[in-house]
Every structure is written in structure tokens, then in C-alpha cells.
Design a protein around this nucleic acid. Structure first.
Lengths: 256, 256
DNA sequence: AAGTGGTCTAGACCACTAT
DNA sequence: TAGTGGTCTAGACCACTTT
């Protein structure tokens, strides 16, 4: 009886509702995803062929393909030409962490503040010159900033900007690493692309003091190197975020 | 003259080669991507409409749509119904870091080794019981392992597994956190999904000693919690990886 | 009203895999 | 040879935005 009830429920949900606001390809993808989550299809199992799905759900081949492609893009299934579509199991290496978690450190409100500790033109040392593709001693804009929320320091940033009268260095570049511009889409930027890297590091005495952490303390080191549309380095720097301030989260597999 | 040469080259590359092994939708996506990287289209610019692209490249609307969808999925452009398709600029929050970098810590060779330091049945303490959804004092399998490569310790793992005679606890689960099974696709696993989190932390005295690091030292704390197909927790644990061993890298924008 | 992206059809042909 | 996924067509209709 219980089984039958469940079965009926499943059957009812296994139809495409053509009047729904939800497109057919999404409905079908969700139906399949749910069946996988409910272990109707187990990791390693072969999904029904596209032709079968076309018949079963009364949609066109292209729509079925789109559903399958969606699941494949999400890593839920994998396809093999000539063989079929198969359910993938848990795979740790498919996990990824994104900087939206960093973004949420600020919250949505405007209670964030940026304190400009230092900004001046310096001579590039060996490392800075190498990163920015300049010669040692080249004039470079140096910045130190402290980002706070609720009057508590959240992270510390140090950065170097190319200083070249022939190249327009404006607020646009600096915005990319500012509170407002840090995560926003920079439409009219001079920056084309960037490299980012994260490491775990010990806070220096200076960093610990600014961030109000007792020594020793651990934190994230987030380095960035941005390039302009000529693929020349334009900006290099790094954020220091105390380890207890930030946690990157991810899920693998299908929760349900 | 130079301009003309470049122009000619661009024109030549702006055709779909129907004899290519590369599908038309990919060719078109790459053409558009290259134009964006070469600043033919700048961030904020509107791309030609789909109808225009259909005419310009002689492909069907569905093929154009697929190209655009691909670029949109990759964050290169954004689409707005009724308005058009627009080039996106640099956006830090779109950056993501994946555990493939962790995987590469091992390299491909078999010079990796796992040393089982400890495995025994313990009584769950408050925290472990909470994580695993058990009652305090419940019998739990406890493991401590050290992963090495080239005779140097790389990371340290501690984990707890549900111990329940009614539930099959086999090598399959333990494999997920073993050297071979850590990143492989686990097709016949009892695990359905998992939560992962990364923090930056100070190494404890025990961890530093095992990993041959002088105190104080910083490292990544990678926590995992795996669930079975009934959505019950099955395994909880964490990896400690010295900060100088691991670097997560990402790029944002279009290098070209 | 005109233009845009979003979805969908009902097939076609191809490449690949298994038998 | 039969079955599978992969690509592509040449439209259609819809929802939305702008003018």
C-alpha cells in the first residue's frame, strides 16, 4: 500500500506540464535528477536512451538533449557516444569553491568601510617589477587598505599599480579592488583578465595587529594579478583574511 | 597596410568551416570569444543579435543560440530577454577554485603512500555525535592517516565513520578518503552526496610534528561530511594540508 | 510595432559502440 | 546491423523591452 502510494506519486510527477512557467527541458532535467537522487538510477547505471525519453515524455529530441546536456554540465551524468548516458558517482575533485563566499563577508548592507592606510609612488623592488613586467626601480603606485564591517577589520589589502603617464590609470582600476567594485561587473574597465591564487599563511606582525588578531594567527592569502587589453600586467596585490573570518563551502553529489 | 592585413586575417577566421571536426556551434563561440578578447567587443557592448549572427555566419538559429548559451554559461556574456546579449567585464566573484589542484599534489605516479596511524572503534564525543547524527557515546570508527609523496608528508587526515552492524560499512566508504579513491568517480558507492568546507588554520602541535613543520605553521583545514542514499551522515573528517604545500589557482576574464 | 532573446518542433545525417 | 549519443536545420511561437 505504501509502495503503491509512493509509486503513484512518482508517476504523477513524471510528466511534463506544458502549462508550467518552467520550460520542458528544465522539468525533464529535474525529473531525471530527482530519480537519481532517489536512487531510481544509481551511480554507474545507464539512463534511458534519448529516443526512449522522447517517447516517454512526449518532447522532441532536441529538448531531451538539452536536458541531458544540462545534467552532464553539472556533472550529474556523463555521456559516451555510441554507448549511452550514465549516472556519475561522488567525485571529490569536481568540488569547487567560489569567491561568492568572500563577497558575503560584507553582507548586503552598507555597513562596510574602507580605510586607506597608505597610497604613494614607490620604486618597484625586484619582486614587484617581475610581477608587473617592469624594470626594477620603475615608479609604481603602492596602496595599503583595511576593509571593515561593523567596526571590525575583516581584511587587509596591499597592491601595486603600474605608474605610466602614457597609460590611463584611473579610478576604474582601483575600483576593482575597492569595496563597491570588488565583486561588481566592471563594464568599462581597462582590465581584461586576471590570475588569482589562494594560500594559507601565517599573519605577519603587522597584519595581525591591523586585523586585531593575537599572534600567531593563520589566514588566507589571496593574490591577484590583473592584465589590460594588451595583456600587460596592470595591477598586482593580495588580500589577507583571518582564517576565522572566512569559510569556503561546497557540495558534491546530489543532496536530493 | 598593416591594418588591412589584420583585417583580412580577421575576416578569414570569421567563417564557419563546415568540413572541420570542430562543430559549428563551437567554432562560432570561439570566434565571438576571440573578438571579445581582441576588444572588438568591449565589456558592456551589445553583441550582434541572434538573427544577425544567423545571417552573418550562415547557421540556423538553434546553432547560434547554442553558441551564445555556451558563452553565457562561461560567464563571458550575459543575455537579457527583449534587450540583447552583452559582454561581461571582470567579475571577481565569478572566480572559483577546484580541488583538482589538491589532486595534483600527488602527481600521476605511484610515489604516493598512505600510512595508517590509527584505526579503532571509539565512543562518539558530543561534536562527532552531532555531525554524524548519532547519540553521544555511540560506537564510531576513528581513523588517522598520513599521506606522503617522495617520503615527505603532504597531508594528514582524521575521520569518523558510523559503526552500525545494520548498515554496510565496507572499503567503499573508506576508499573515498583514500589515495586512489579520493578523486576517482565512485560508481558503486553508498555515498550520495557530501558537504565540503575549507578554512585557514594554525597547525596543532601534533599536526605540525607529523607534517614536519616548525611551530607555528599555517595550513588548510578541509572538512568533509558524506551522506548515504537515505541522507544520513556516514562519514565525517578533515584534512590538514600545510600552507606551503597547496595553492589554489583561478583565472577571471578572458586571457584570449 | 519592431526587435530581442527563450523555447520547442520533427525530423535529418553523422560518428561511434556493441553484437 | 542496430542502437547510441552529437550535431544541425528551418522554421514556429512566446515573453519581454524599447520606441
Amino acid at each position: 500500500m505504501v509502495n503503491q502510494a509512493i509509486h503513484t506519486t512518482s508517476l504523477a510527477s513524471l510528466q511534463i506540464d506544458r502549462d508550467s512557467y518552467e520550460p520542458a527541458y528544465l522539468q525533464l532535467a529535474n525529473i531525471l535528477r530527482r530519480q537519481i537522487a532517489e536512487a531510481v538510477f544509481r551511480p554507474g547505471d545507464q539512463l534511458p536512451s534519448e529516443a526512449q525519453l522522447v517517447q516517454r515524455y512526449g518532447v522532441s529530441p532536441m529538448t531531451v538533449r538539452r536536458s541531458i546536456n544540462l545534467l552532464a554540465d553539472q556533472g550529474v551524468v556523463s555521456t559516451a557516444q555510441g554507448r549511452g548516458t550514465f549516472v556519475r558517482g561522488l567525485e571529490l575533485s569536481t568540488a569547487y569553491f567560489d569567491l561568492k563566499d568572500l563577497q558575503e563577508l560584507f553582507g548586503r548592507g552598507d555597513d562596510g568601510a574602507v580605510k586607506l592606510l597608505d597610497v604613494r609612488v614607490v620604486s618597484a623592488d625586484e619582486r614587484t617589477a617581475r610581477k608587473l613586467g617592469q624594470s626594477v626601480g620603475a615608479p609604481t603606485i603602492y596602496m595599503r587598505r583595511l576593509f571593515s564591517r561593523d567596526h571590525e577589520p575583516i581584511f587587509y589589502h596591499r597592491g601595486y599599480l603600474i605608474y605610466d603617464p602614457a597609460r590611463p590609470i584611473v579610478e576604474a582600476e582601483m575600483d576593482v579592488t575597492s569595496l563597491q567594485g570588488l565583486f561588481a561587473n566592471v563594464s568599462n574597465s581597462l582590465l581584461k583578465w586576471g590570475e588569482l591564487a589562494i594560500e594559507a599563511t601565517l599573519l605577519s606582525a603587522e597584519e595581525a595587529e591591523l586585523l586585531c588578531k593575537p599572534m600567531p594567527a593563520a589566514g588566507f592569502y589571496l593574490e591577484h594579478l590583473f592584465y589590460d587589453f594588451d595583456n600587460r600586467p596592470l595591477s598586482w596585490g593580495w588580500f589577507i583574511i583571518p582564517g576565522d573570518r572566512l569559510r569556503f563551502a561546497a557540495t558534491v553529489g546530489l543532496k536530493d
